[in-house]
Design a protein around this nucleic acid. Structure first.
Length: 868
RNA sequence: GGGUGCUUAGCUCAGCGGUAGAGCGCCUCGUUUACACCGAGGAUGUCGGGGGUUCGAAACCCUCAGCGCCCACCA
């Protein structure tokens, strides 16, 4: 292995020039395929998202960042990793995009027909989705994004058929007429989770039903549904209405007669204590209807038009009908009260924000009770861990209260429900390789996206076949995703995984990250115009910079703000790294031969190796806990503060001196950069690869070993010595600054007190860092500066700025005096002395002594300067 | 209506019982041969308000206020 010519590393770091070639090289060398013959422990990381349908956004960039960091580190640690591609078989999101295109052309999907519509979706994906996915690669990921892999391929279709049939045979899938959430714009059923409840200003009208002594007042926010009322309900114990229960009253505007019934569900405290019952258009009412054998009258069509009421309202849109019904009732004098505005929650379609219409309809459901209990238990008994654990209650709350899951969608893009109906409505559920008898027809509906997504951890591995991958990679180790997708996707994977594998969950750990927000921490939205395109940042600052800034802000479970300046800062870090490595190469840093024994190393060398091992240890434990932000921060601090600001500066003196010590430092420096680059590789894959190749001449950092912390390198003496040196240097610099001495100006000075201190051997380094030169024969100090036990005598060839120096000393004196005050106050407290731990008391005592010394020293210096 | 989280420097956030931190921004000086996408130095906070626990609280408890998120079949 030979060190390459430093000239080969261009002076200017240009991300665009290194990223693409390196990516191509990695792919070419096949670094990203699983090695099936490996005898290393299986280790996979599931990668989301299965539904890359819409716009590539920061959320996906963050997900990929975290996953790729974990994967790359595991790979370097020698584990076998398998990165599975996401699949794109989403329903509504994709469908929406294409439908919008169609409506711009003035046609609906129903004009187009099923087959042609699906072709349109494919076309969109090829043009738009494909381009987006192509860009994702530049984050350094390794996914095979080919059309076959991320779409409804044959394998997935097989898996869907298999699971559907198994669940059906187990009695866990059923078809029933229920009140479901219906989106009148998407024209499909929705599951509960696809409905967002938002507060809306509506109107609560109180309507008098019946007349005379059987008059009863009900209140509603959806007046139009009264056309479908089939009862009025009161609480059984409500004295006010007991005489009415069992009677029949006339339903206004319709001429129909409906009964007054008693049901426990009614809250006597709310409103008048009487409720209109519309079984076909309200979940509660439907249940009341079931209990009392009421008729369900559907009066609102799929497209939200009133129909079948034999009234003037037929043909009106639901909102128009609402106003018209109220007016008609008012004309009859039946409106007894109106409350407006009346704030109440209304369900909206998550995709298109249309108000959802609860509607009686025949759909397919998954019976979730046992499945959900298992999913909850798997986390409760520790088979699956959720990181961060604070999000567990949210998981339990949801899983433990899950209602049956409506899985049929009246859409065309998706897996068609594998149910066939015979001539007499017989039902046949087909598994893989089974065929329906002639003349039978398949159910028109498709499955909820999340139904097939839920199979992802094993359908991608070839299930239901027992493939080698299946055996090796199920269960997988880690699932990484944003918390907002916990219920949509993660829970579904749990439900199915536990069912299919008889209690073995699909993964060991669920790692949840937050959402990416704008620079002010506000949610990004198109209407606010505060969305950020990650690709723009990649083009401008490089993939590494984007990735590093995402990682550096990724605290588990909490949202992160991102702004252009943050990414620019990460790019600055990359540039710093580039230049530092360039410096190392120019000075002959190398990785040849063993590191000399500690006794042959300089203090600076021992210190930097100590910090390196410390950093490695910290980064390891942080990444094991998925603390990406803190791990990135530790690396940033070590690289910039320790290596660049101190170590490299210290070695300048060593290299100027030359000799054996310089050779040793060259070797140590090579080691430091070698390991630092490896530690940073998962977080900044491209630049580290590029630099590492120049430094080591190795084959690729991708397949290099992950560094191990050498705890023997931890060196308390070197660390203490370094702290003393840093303090001395900083104080001298501060003095120079206060005196208005230009940084570059070399000034003769005598360093008194070094001999007796730990810094005895470090004069050359200190002089180099502070630009204080060795005094010659004619040296006559004109000022002296006391720092701790040191005195720096300086020849300023003139007088010092007394005013500035007095100000500086006065400030230091203030600080020392207040230190004394604080420490004394605490020590004067007997309770503190008796109750606080000994170590704490000692610390304060020491601090007080030190502060006293400071006060004396500074006072004396002030005295002298005033006299002179 | 139930949960749940947040409120720390101008902005975004760490810290979660022993002297208030980072990045960006700000001020001063600087072409020092790795780097001006830089270096050196500096300023900036009664840690949302009020109580309490403790020798000691930004951190623990109670309470109030503001903001956010999740869940929800209140007509």
């Amino acid at each position: 292995m030979s060190t390459q010519d430093a000239n080969a590393l261009p002076p200017q770091f240009v991300p665009a020039e290194i990223e693409a070639p390196l990516y191509e090289r990695w792919v070419e060398r096949g670094y990203f395929t699983a090695d099936a013959n490996s005898d290393k422990p299986p280790y996979t990381i599931v990668i989301p998202p299965p539904n890359v349908t819409g716009i590539l956004h920061m959320g996906h960039a963050l997900e990929h960042t975290e996953i790729d960091i974990l994967i790359r580190r595991r790979r370097m640690q020698g584990y076998e990793t398998l990165w599975l591609p996401g699949m794109d078989h989403a329903g509504i999101a994709t469908q929406n995009v294409v439908e919008r295109q169609l409506s711009a052309e003035g046609i609906s999907r129903h004009d187009l027909g099923r087959e042609d519509f699906i072709e349109r979706v494919w076309k969109w994906k090829a043009e738009y989705g494909g381009a987006i996915l192509g860009q994702m690669r530049r984050l350094g990921d390794s996914v095979d994004w080919s059309r076959e892999r991320f779409t409804m391929d044959a394998g997935l279709a097989r898996a869907v058929l298999t699971i559907f049939k198994r669940l059906y045979d187990a009695g866990l899938i059923y078809r029933a007429e229920r009140i479901i959430n219906w989106c009148p714009r998407c024209l499909t059923a929705l599951s509960d989770i696809e409905v967002d409840h938002d507060d809306v200003e509506g109107e609560l009208v109180s309507i008098r039903y019946g007349d005379g002594d059987s008059a009863i007042v009900v209140a509603t926010t959806r007046a139009e549904t009264m056309l479908g009322d089939t009862a009025v309900a009161v609480h059984p114990d409500d004295k006010r209405y007991q005489h009415l229960v069992g009677r029949t009253i006339e339903l206004p505007l319709t001429g129909r007669f409906i009964p007054i019934i008693a049901d426990e569900h009614v809250d006597p405290e709310f409103g008048t204590g009487a409720v209109k019952v519309t079984p076909a258009h309200d979940v509660n009412d439907f249940e009341i209807g079931l209990r009392h054998g009421l008729e369900s009258r559907v009066v609102i069509e799929a497209n939200a038009i009133i129909f079948g009421t034999d009234t003037e309202f037929d043909g009106l849109d639901r909102f128009a009908a609402r106003a018209a019904v109220v007016e008609a009732l008012r004309a009859e004098g039946r409106i007894v009260a109106e409350k407006r505005p009346y704030l109440h929650a209304v369900g909206h379609c998550q995709r298109c924000e249309t108000a959802v219409e609860p509607r009686l309809s025949k759909q397919w459901f998954v019976k979730v009770d046992v499945l959900a209990k298992n999913a909850g238990d798997a986390v409760r008994d520790g088979r699956v861990r959720i990181e961060p654990a604070d999000l567990e209650p949210r998981y339990f709350d949801w899983v433990d209260n899950l209602r049956d899951w409506c899985i049929s969608r009246q859409l065309w893009w998706g897996h068609r429900i594998p149910v066939w109906y015979g001539p007499n409505e017989e039902i046949l559920v087909l598994g893989p390789d089974e065929e329906a008898p002639a003349g039978w027809r398949q159910d028109e509906d498709v499955l909820d996206t999340w139904f097939s997504s839920g199979l992802w951890p094993f359908s991608t591995l070839g299930w239901p076949e027992k493939t080698p991958e299946m055996v090796k990679f199920y269960p997988t180790s880690v699932l990484v995703t944003a918390y907002d997708i916990l219920f949509f996707w993660v829970v579904r994977m749990m439900l199915f995984g536990l069912f299919v594998f008889d209690g073995v969950p699909p993964f060991d750990v669920i790692v949840l990250h937050g959402l990416v927000r704008d620079r002010y921490g506000k949610k990004m939205s198109k209407s606010k115009g505060n969305t950020i395109d990650p690709i723009e940042f990649m083009d401008k600052y490089g993939s590494d910079a984007l990735r590093f800034s995402l990682a550096r802000n990724a605290n588990p479970g909490s949202d992160q703000a991102i702004a252009e300046e943050w990414v620019a800062g990460a790019r600055n870090f990359a540039t710093k790294l580039w230049n530092a490595t360039r410096f190392a190469l120019m000075n002959g840093a190398n990785v040849t031969g063993a590191i000399p024994a500690p006794e042959n190393l300089s203090a600076a060398d021992r210190w930097v190796l100590s910090r390196l091992s410390e950093t490695t240890r910290d980064v390891d434990s942080l990444l094991e806990r998925f603390e990406f932000a803190k791990a990135s921060e530790a690396l940033y601090r070590f690289a910039w503060d320790d290596v660049c600001d101190w170590y490299l500066e210290l070695t300048k003196a060593t290299f100027a001196e030359g000799g054996a010590a310089a050779d040793v430092s060259r070797r140590v420096m090579g080691q430091v950069f070698d390991e630092l680059l490896r530690l940073l590789h998962p977080t900044m894959p491209f630049i580290t690869e590029s630099l590492w190749l120049h430094l080591t001449g190795g084959e690729s950092i991708v397949i290099a070993d992950w560094p191990e912390a050498r705890l023997d390198d931890l060196d308390a003496n070197a660390t203490a010595e370094m702290a003393a040196l840093q303090e001395l240097v900083t104080e001298i610099r501060r003095f120079r600054n206060d005196q208005g001495l230009q940084p570059a100006r070399r000034i003769p000075a005598r360093l008194v007190g070094l001999e007796e201190s730990v810094l005895v051997t470090r004069e050359a380094e200190i002089r180099s860092l502070t630009r204080l030169t060795v005094p010659d024969d004619g040296f006559s100090p004109s000022a002296s500066l006391e720092i701790g036990s040191f005195t720096i005598e300086i020849d300023l060839s003139g007088t010092i700025d007394v005013v500035a120096e007095k100000a500086r000393l006065a400030k230091d004196l203030d600080a020392a005096a207040s230190e004394v005050e604080q420490a004394e106050a605490r020590l004067a407290n007997d309770e503190f002395r008796s109750k606080a731990p000994e170590a704490v008391v000692k610390k304060i005592t020491d601090r007080l002594a030190e502060a006293h010394r400071e006060v004396a020293r500074i006072s004396a210096a002030l005295e002298r300067i005033t006299q002179s």
